[in-house]
């Protein structure tokens, strides 16, 4: 029972890293991408391969994974920072699928669908963190660092610029800030954090394959973020914990294992729709997500004259 609870907490911790980092780009800067799971995967592969093939110790692998995901994000975001709204979605969707296809097909590097087994547990100066408690400790430590960095960014003047990026990019440009540069920076930072989460995950589960980094992964991250409250940082972390309790609740409800996977996703999606309809600001949110859209932005006249 103890191992079981620790396993749930560990996964919740890893998804908390993902949700918090996603929140920087989505909740603060208003950039809706469906590629966060792909950056998670890039980090996981980079970390796993650098530990296995180069023999890097865990802390360096962590940096390598973060750097890999961050660099890819920067390379992608450089041209893509022109993209906004719908274009960003299509671009990130295509990017996520391309990543998954490459993980499957670059078999010389990734071993394709067979995945990479035997990833070592985190170690520091020869000490292996190989029991469930110690692994949870490592996860919480990485989460703390990511959370701290994210919080520092959000609380700084730079964080206010990010909020402006979401609320009023035109005003931001008028104030002399480059919208494109901010987008590029925050996407890179957010992806690098997802990359670090990927390394931690790879080291925790010891085996990775492309199926762990599909569009569904991004979906779960998005649900955790929105459920907890986008734009609050600690909200998404809570959201991640809630998300990881759902499958366990289904297990205890006595639902057969074969039905649990699909039901689980249905519950996530239903939660998301409920949040969108009833409480867009999420569990922890204080600001309304739907702020100050001037009437011109909605294509229908619903805000001024309700039809019928």
């Amino acid at each position: 029972m103890e191992a079981y609870i620790l396993a749930v907490l560990a996964m919740a911790g890893i998804y908390a890293m993902l949700a918090v980092s996603y929140d920087l780009a989505f909740g603060y800067a208003g950039l809706f991408s469906v590629a966060h799971g792909a950056f998670f995967g890039i980090g996981a592969y980079a970390g796993a391969l650098s530990m296995l093939n180069l023999g890097l110790p865990f802390p360096l692998a962590l940096l390598a994974g973060a750097a890999a995901a961050g660099l890819v994000a920067a390379a992608i975001a450089l041209p893509a920072s022109r993209l906004e709204g719908d274009y960003l979605i299509v671009g990130s969707l295509a990017f996520a699928v391309i990543c998954h296809e490459l993980m499957l097909n670059l078999t010389e590097v990734t071993r394709g669908p067979m995945g990479i087994p035997g990833i070592p547990p985190p170690s520091l100066f020869g000490f292996d963190f190989d029991t469930p408690w110690l692994q949870l400790l490592v996860i919480l430590a990485v989460l703390a660092v990511i959370g701290l960095v994210a919080w520092r960014i959000a609380a700084s003047p730079y964080g206010r610029v990010l909020r402006a990026l979401k609320d009023d990019p035109t005003a931001l440009e008028a104030a002399g800030k480059s919208v494109r540069r901010r987008k590029l920076e925050i996407l890179t930072v957010s992806a690098a954090m997802a990359g670090a989460a990927g390394v931690t995950y790879a080291s925790y589960v010891a085996f990775i394959d492309p199926e762990s980094f599909i569009a569904r992964t991004s979906f779960v991250i998005i649900v955790a973020t929105v459920l907890g409250g986008a734009g609050t940082l600690w909200g998404p972390a809570i959201g991640a914990l809630v998300i990881w309790c759902v499958p366990e609740a289904l297990r205890f409800a006595g639902i057969p294992a074969t039905l649990r996977g699909p039901l689980n996703e249905i519950v996530y999606a239903a939660l998301l729709i409920l949040i969108v309809m009833l409480r867009p600001e999420g569990i922890a949110g204080r600001r309304r997500l739907r702020t100050r859209t001037e009437t011109g932005t909605t294509t229908t006249a619903s805000t001024t004259t309700p039809a019928n």
């Binding site: 989505f26 809706f32 709204g85 979605i89 998005i222 729709i273 867009p280 997500l289 619903s302």
Partner: peptide, 10 residues
């Protein structure tokens, strides 16, 4: 009058 982000999510 929900903003685009909520549309995507829903």
């Amino acid at each position: 009058g929900a903003p685009p982000l909520l549309w995507f999510l829903a």
